[in-house]
């Protein structure tokens, strides 16, 4: 009984993660700027993949009682390195003078 409940929760997590991944792709297509696109890509796809991996972890835990610590380590690793990767790329894109949209009103890094 409890195994069925755990498997159902894991399926819910997997579907939610897939939908978050699709939202990340839509943001990557439709947003107008490099910086906004990186905002969509780093946050949403990181959370989506974390949800899916937690779903897979719960599935293996619920179906044959197998505790897989590598998946927890992978979740922790993505949670640390996904935003760091986005930050590095955006920093180098700013310093190599990638243009932003015309509707940008404020640039705090531009010290004159």
């Amino acid at each position: 009984m409890i195994d069925t409940i755990v498997i159902i929760v894991s399926m819910i997590f997997i579907i939610l993660g897939a939908l978050l991944s699709v939202i990340s792709a839509i943001g990557l297509i439709r947003l107008p700027d490099v910086y906004t696109r990186a905002h969509a890509a780093s946050k949403s796809s990181t959370l989506g993949v974390m949800f899916m991996m937690f779903g897979v972890f719960l599935y293996f835990l619920g179906r044959d009682h197998h505790f897989e610590p590598t998946l927890l380590l992978a979740i922790l690793f993505i949670f640390t390195t996904g935003p760091i990767g986005g930050h590095l790329i955006m920093r180098s894109a700013y310093y190599s003078e990638t243009p932003y949209t015309e509707t940008t009103v404020r640039d705090d890094l531009n010290i004159e």
Binding site: S42, G48, V49, M53, I89, S92
Partner: peptide
């Protein structure tokens, strides 16, 4: 249009590939 776009998209592609491998293992 720029190089930073392509690098951001390739990063997201690698992360999505990790999710696909996890789903395939199920």
């Amino acid at each position: 249009p720029t190089l930073a776009d392509r690098v951001v998209a390739l990063d997201a592609l690698g992360i999505s590939l990790m999710a696909m491998i996890a789903l395939f293992s199920v």
